[in-house]
Design a protein around this nucleic acid. Structure first.
Lengths: 175, 175
DNA sequence: TCGAGTGATGTCAGGCGCTGACATCACTCA
DNA sequence: TGAGTGATGTCAGCGCCTGACATCACTCGA
C-alpha cells in the first residue's frame, strides 16, 4: 500500500512490491493470485463473517434478523480489523484505478452471492434470498462510503443500521 | 467468438484472434483496449441509447416515465442489434470466465452511473437518481437473464416491463 | 538420532498481454 | 501533383504470470 500510494497502482511493479517485502516475485504470486489481490486479501474472511452470522442467527426471529446480524458482524469486523484510516487509504487507491474498481465490484458480487446462499440454506425462498443478498451489500456499501467520508466520526455499525432502517422506510411508504 | 466458444477465453490468444481476422496483433490492440473488450465493444452504444432515451423523454410525464423509456429503447436496441441467439452464445462465454464476469460488472456499473447522470441532468435529485440508476440496471439485468433462458420466446421489452411492474408492486406493498 | 516427509521459498525459462516508436501504404483534397 | 491523413505493419521490449525443479527448515516417527 505504501508503494501504491506513492506511485499509483499501475506504475508499481510486482517486482517492486516483492523487493520491498524482501521476497521473490515468484513468492508474491504464491500468496496472491494476481497483482490486484494484494488489496483484497481479507475479503474472503469478511465474507465468512457475514455467512457465519447468518447461519448462527436465532431461528425464531423476524426475517430481517439474520440480515441485521450479518451487517453488524461484518461492520464490526471491518472496523476492528484495520480501522478507519486504513480503510480510507485503501479506498483512495482503489477508486483511483479502474482495474481495482473492477475487482471490487467482483468481490461485492461474491459477497452478495454468499449471503444469498447462506439465506437459502436457512430455508429462505430463492427470490427473496437473492433480493436480500443485494440489499445487504447495498446497505453495507452505502454505509461504508459514509463511514470513510472526511470528518465522519460515527460507528460503521451505526451507519449500517441507519441505512437499513432508511431502506425499510422507503419500501414501507412505497413511493 | 468462434475461437472463444471452441477453446475458451483464456486458451485463445490475441495472436490467434488477430490471425483469424487477417490482421496483426498490434492492429487488434488499436481497435480494442484489451483482450476482454472484444466482447463488450457495443456496450458504449447501448449506454448511449439509454441516456438519449432519458434525455428525450417527455417532460410532463410521471417520474418513472424516463426510466421506462430508457428500458424500452435499450431493450429494443439490444434485441434488434444481434438477436437472441447471439446473446446466448456471448453470455455463455462470459459466464464461463471470471475475468469476463468481472468486466461485465464494470460495464453494468457504468451503465447505472450513466443513467444516474442523465437523470440528474433532468433535474432529478441526486439520491433518487442514484437509486433509479441501480433500479434500471437491476430490471435490465433480470429481464435479460430471463430473455436468454432456454425455451423463452417472449420479447425482451415485454420482460422488462413485467419486471419493472413487479418491482413497483413490491415497493408498494412494502413487505 | 536419523531419515523421510512436508511446506515455504528461490531460481530459471518462457508464454502472453500490451505499448511506444517508426515505417508503409492507400486515399483525399487543395 | 504533392501534402496531409488515417489505418496498418514491423519491431523491440516491459511487465504479469506460470510450470518445473532445487533448496532449505521443520516435524515426526522408527
Amino acid at each position: 500500500m505504501e508503494l501504491f500510494a506513492e506511485d499509483g497502482f499501475e506504475a508499481t511493479t510486482v517486482a517492486g512490491i516483492a523487493a520491498r517485502a524482501g521476497v521473490t516475485e515468484r513468492t508474491f504470486f504464491r500468496h496472491f493470485a494476481d497483482k490486484r489481490e494484494v488489496l483484497f486479501a481479507g475479503e474472503s474472511l469478511l465474507e465468512k463473517v457475514f455467512v457465519d452470522a447468518i447461519a448462527n442467527a436465532p431461528a425464531g426471529a423476524p426475517p430481517a434478523g439474520p440480515l441485521l446480524a450479518a451487517l453488524d458482524a461484518g461492520g464490526r469486523a471491518l472496523q476492528d480489523e484495520r480501522g478507519r484510516d486504513h480503510a480510507r487509504a485503501r479506498n483512495e487507491i482503489i477508486t483511483a484505478n479502474e482495474q481495482l474498481r473492477e475487482r471490487e465490484l467482483l468481490k461485492l458480487a461474491k459477497l452478495s452471492h454468499a449471503v444469498t446462499t447462506a439465506l437459502v440454506e436457512r430455508g429462505v425462498a430463492d427470490v427473496t434470498a437473492c433480493l436480500a443478498g443485494e440489499l445487504v451489500v447495498l446497505v453495507f456499501r452505502t454505509a461504508f462510503t459514509r463511514w470513510i467520508a472526511p470528518g465522519e466520526t460515527r460507528d460503521l455499525v451505526e451507519l449500517q443500521r441507519e441505512g437499513f432502517a432508511a431502506v425499510n422506510d422507503l419500501a414501507r411508504t412505497g413511493t
